[in-house]
Write a protein that binds this DNA or RNA. Structure first.
Length: 560
RNA sequence: GGGCCGCUAGCUCAGCUGGUAGAGCAACGCCCUUUUAAGGCGUGGGUCACUGGUUCGAACCCAGUGCGGCUCACCA
């Protein structure tokens, strides 16, 4: 870059001298070639975040990147943005040669506040309201709790997209009194914490407020009132459901928990978190990140992590909302049915976190696959683009890979073409793959893509895209003599298909129409009706090649 | 009310630490005696929301205005 800038300047100088016009070298010429020399090349957001972390946190033996959500419902694709954002930054740090601890916190000691719609045994679940979700039974599968069911559902699938964090279960930690020290510190700073929180509240916290909440050991519910703290480890509370009172020792009790706004900074300090992003609900002034930033400093004596705000993910081309309230949730499994793992990563790596984007299930799917393939061609230098764009796309490609970048460019079979091939073979993925010479890695990638294509065709594609080759069981189409003669002529051409290429076959088809004095349009619709039982179809010449000589002949023979 | 984000071609958007405004689709045109939902080639099209400022130079940085969206001020 520097060399080229200098070279250009030199050429400008030479041409200026040659023309004898000294005024050609004006200020703007000087600046134009000076300033870019100082300019850093533009970097991917994950890399610039990684740099920011090392800059702000200084050189460390290990950096801690944290992510976490509440498993109080099925984890949807919006939540996934949290995880993948951290994963990409983790990878960027590791690419800088840094050692990174990637932790993922399951907030499974949160309260079960309402029963999600469409849950089996809703009445049973009803009885667990106000208890921690880790104690709520799993009524869908056979996990030990509602929380665990949601956790495992995600944990099992994350490795497929290259995300393998260290999981931390907050319920387990709280219930083993692991955070006793952190809770005590909060109690010691009770007044300061209240002051800070009150700055952003409309109604101030009451005088008798304590920065801790308790799940009654009599009922497991959080309908309790903290009565006193002895300044050491003793906490006294009253269970409002039973009226009973109890004093517990923070060092060996399972019932005390910090409220979210205090819990978060406590954990930052406990784990030494260097980076943690958050959704926009946390990132407003007066939001929980804001108060946590102050609390971690003033109460726990630590610095807040580097952060950024990520926006929501919309869903396009699929009924139902992303949220769990509608019952139909779009989660990572649903997305992976349509998109290959590296393309799921590509979607998130290619979009800056702070902008909203949609995951599409409609026709956009075709474009996304084309975009990914283009990105891949640019990475492997098969498609030429400007240097700036090449650098950018290449980095996105690297970050999109689940593991290592392939050594050679994978065979690219366009998604759209796969859709046709699969329909010709009635969804038989192996039959389609069998047409290609593939090594193991290619076979795996293409197999995934083929399964996605079949899923898309059968579940989401517009009716226009769907067809199936007519077989012996399908009803014969009524034809007149003219149409039959056209089919006979076509059969002749198909029999000598090896002599044709797509173009010559196309020409031959038009010749047939002209000779028979039939409108090409009618010819096409006739052929489509007998081949796939529809009025229209993919471009015919290419389609005949794709279907193959034998299959086409078998169908034609029914009519001649 | 506070905060954040967005406003770029007819549409969807890219362009992001300042250096001659881009892509896809749409439109229009041309091509093969030739287009059916996927052909090839080409063309046109933008006061980068607005007003100021900084700068040799601003879509980009700063201040403000307008419009749209989200979010916090309960809980997590």
């Amino acid at each position: 870059m520097k060399r080229f800038a200098g070279l250009s300047l030199l050429m400008d100088l030479v041409s200026a001298l040659g023309s004898g016009e000294s005024s050609v070298i004006d200020k703007s010429t000087i600046y134009k070639y000076n300033l870019p020399i100082m300019k850093k090349q533009n970097t991917h957001w994950a890399d610039s975040t990684a740099e920011k972390i090392t800059r702000q946190k200084g050189e460390k033996e290990q950096y801690v990147c944290a992510s976490g959500i509440t498993p109080s419902g099925t984890v949807h694709i919006g939540n996934f943005r949290e995880i993948i954002s951290v994963e990409l930054v983790v990878r960027a740090l590791r690419d800088m040669g840094k050692d990174v601890r990637f932790i993922y916190s399951w907030d499974d000691y949160d309260v079960f506040r309402k029963v999600p719609k469409n849950m089996p045994q809703a009445e049973l679940l009803e009885t667990y309201l106000r208890k921690p979700i880790t104690l709520v039974p799993d009524t869908r599968y056979s996990y030990s709790s509602y929380a665990e069911a949601n956790e495992k559902e995600l944990e099992q699938i994350l490795p497929q997209v290259g995300v393998e964090p260290e999981y931390i279960y907050q319920a387990q930690r709280y219930r083993s009194a692991y955070y006793a020290e952190g809770i005590r510190t909060a109690l010691e700073h009770r007044d300061r914490i209240r002051e800070i929180l009150d700055e952003h509240r409309t109604t101030p916290l009451p005088e008798d407020w304590w920065p801790v909440s308790v799940f009654s050991s009599f009922t497991d519910r959080d309908n309790t009132t903290v009565l006193d703290w002895d300044g050491q480890w003793g906490l006294t509370y009253r269970c409002e459901d039973t009226g009973r009172e109890e004093t517990v020792d923070l060092r060996d009790c399972a019932v005390a928990k910090l409220p979210w706004r205090v819990d978060w900074p406590m954990r930052w300090s406990h784990e030494g978190v260097d980076f943690e992003p958050a959704g926009k609900d946390h990132h407003s002034e007066g939001g929980s990140f804001d108060t946590a930033r102050r609390l971690v400093k003033e109460v726990y004596g630590a610095e807040a992590p580097v952060t950024f705000q990520y926006d929501f993910v919309r869903i396009k081309g699929r009924g139902g909302k992303i949220s769990s309230s509608s019952g139909e949730v779009v989660g990572l499994p649903e997305v992976l049915e349509i998109y290959q793992p590296e393309i799921v990563r590509f979607l998130f790596a290619g979009t800056r976190p702070n902008s909203e984007f949609a995951i599409s299930f409609d026709l956009d799917v075709l474009k996304i696959y084309e975009d990914y393939d283009k990105c891949e061609r640019i990475y492997f230098g098969v498609q030429e683009v400007g240097e700036k764009k090449r650098a950018k796309e290449s980095r996105i490609y690297e970050l999109s890979q689940v593991h290592d970048v392939p050594k050679t460019m994978p065979l690219q079979v366009p998604f759209r073409h796969l859709c046709n091939l699969l329909q010709i073979h009635s969804g038989d993925v192996d039959a389609v793959l069998g047409q290609y010479e593939l090594n193991r890695e290619q076979k795996e990638r293409l197999g995934q893509r083929a399964r996605c294509a079949w899923n898309w065709i059968t579940r989401y594609s517009p009716e226009d895209f769907r067809f199936h080759l007519q077989g012996q069981d399908d009803p014969r189409v009524e034809l007149d003599e003219k149409q039959r003669s056209v089919l006979r002529a076509l059969k002749v051409e198909v029999e000598k298909l090896v002599e044709h290429d797509e173009e010559s076959l196309g020409t031959a088809i038009y010749d047939i129409a002209r000779d028979a004095e039939i409108e090409p349009k009618e010819l096409f619709s006739t052929v489509y009706r007998i081949l796939i039982g529809k009025e229209k179809g993919p471009r015919l010449a290419g389609f005949i090649f794709t279907v193959g000589r034998e299959k086409v002949l078998r169908i034609l023979e029914r009519y001649v």
